[in-house]
Each structure stands twice: as structure tokens, then as C-alpha cells.
Amino acid sequence: MARPRDPRRRTELLDAIVAYLAEHGIAQLSLRPLAKALGHSTYVLTHHFAGKDELISAVLAHLDRRQKARLAALPAPETGLGDVVRASWAWHVGEDLPMVRLLHEIEGLSAAGRLTGPYVPKMLGDRAEYVAEVLRAHGVPEQDALRKATLLNAAYAGLQIDYLTTGDEERVRAALDELADTADTWTRRS
């Protein structure tokens, strides 16, 4: 009989996997070299993840939980959407930049058809719904929230890619400020 999976151990393992992937990328991911780099046998990985697809799905879910926890710690609804956008940006381009790179690599591989499976579209749909919930909490009307969340996510991700590609912090930051100002207009009361 197989040993039950320990959720705490799985979380620790996911933290180590994410750190490894942030450094090495995911395009050439293979379980054997990953296990070796983590100081484990391949069995340890397959005990917690049935295979590469489940591992990638678990990594995305882990990153998503981390992102949501961080967003929950950002400014309260009274401060305005622009403050949330700016605070999130400061975190992403500061301490979380390796994870941002990893997420965009995963999304790019999925868009190119080189990474299949339902996890990336699900992650993007879940992200849009989560941001729509944040927008609703900031007073964006129900009928507009998901559409505006999709726009905000796409613009924000585009700015991240621009920054990662060009390194032009000043120009991208000015564009981010304009995006944040636009988000603020969605909740201004007349």
C-alpha cells in the first residue's frame, strides 16, 4: 500500500521545484535531472506528482496560491485600484521577478503549442475571475468586472513582458502608472 502524501512535504517540495524552475526554466524539464538537483530520487517526485503534467499543474496552482496571498496583503479597497496595481508591480519586479519570468515562459510555451494540457488556460481564467472579484470589491459593477479584469491582466502582463525584454524601467513604469490611473477611473464616483 502506498504511503499517503504529506501536504506539508508537498508544499516544501513545490517551493524547491519552483526555485529550480525559476533558475533553469521549464522548456526542457525532465523529472530525473530535477529530482537529482533537489537531492531526491525520481520516486519522491512521482509519489507527489503522477507525472510531468501533474507537476506543472501543481506548480501553477502553487504560484497562483502564492500570488493570491500576496494580493490579499495589498492595500484595502478604500485605497483605490491604482494603488493595488502599483503595489503588485513593486513586488513582481522586485523580489518575485524570477517567478514572473517562469510564468511568462509557461504561458509562452502554451501559446506556442509546446506545452499542452488544461492548466494554463485554467490558470488564466482563474486569474481573470480572481481579479474581477478584486475589482468588484473596489466598486466595479458586476457586468463590467470580468471584462475589465481581462483587460487589466493583459495590459499588466504585456508591461511585464516589455520590462523583462527591454529592461526599460522608466518607460514601462510610466506606462504602468497610466494603467493604474485608468484602473482608478473605473471606481471614481461622480
Rank of each mutant, 00 (worst) to 15 (best):
L60N: 09
R189L: 14
P7V: 05
E129R: 15
S88V: 00
E142K: 13
P4E: 01
Y119C: 15
V100F: 02
I26D: 03
T116P: 12
A16M: 04
R136K: 15
P75M: 00
A157D: 04
A111Y: 03
L74R: 10
H92G: 01
S30P: 01
E170P: 09
A19P: 13
A183H: 10
A35L: 04
A180E: 07
D181A: 09
V84M: 03
S41R: 08
A2W: 07
G82I: 01
R70S: 14
R65M: 04
Y156C: 09
W91Q: 02
L152N: 06
R114Q: 15
Q160D: 00
G113I: 11
A37Q: 08
L164V: 05
R10W: 02
A111E: 02
E105P: 14
R66Y: 03
E142G: 08
D126E: 04
L97S: 09
V59W: 02
V85H: 03
A19C: 06
G139M: 09
V120A: 06
Y20S: 12
D83W: 00
L179F: 07
H40Q: 15
Y43G: 15
N153F: 02
D83Y: 01
L135Y: 02
R136A: 10
H47G: 13
R5C: 08
D83V: 00
Y20R: 10
Q160W: 02
L152W: 05
P4C: 01
R10K: 15
M1K: 10
S190M: 01
L176T: 08
G82K: 14
L135N: 10
L164T: 11
M123K: 13
A16Q: 13
A87S: 05
V44S: 09
R5H: 08
A58S: 15
L176P: 14
T11L: 11
T42V: 14
K52W: 05
R66P: 00
E107Q: 11
V84K: 01
A157S: 13
E129W: 05
I17E: 07
A90C: 03
V44E: 09
L45H: 10
K122N: 06
I56E: 02
D184M: 01
D126F: 03
R9V: 01
R86M: 08
A145I: 04
P77F: 00
G125Y: 01
L34E: 06
Q67C: 06
D64Q: 14
A128S: 09
G125R: 13
Q143N: 11
L135C: 10
R5G: 05
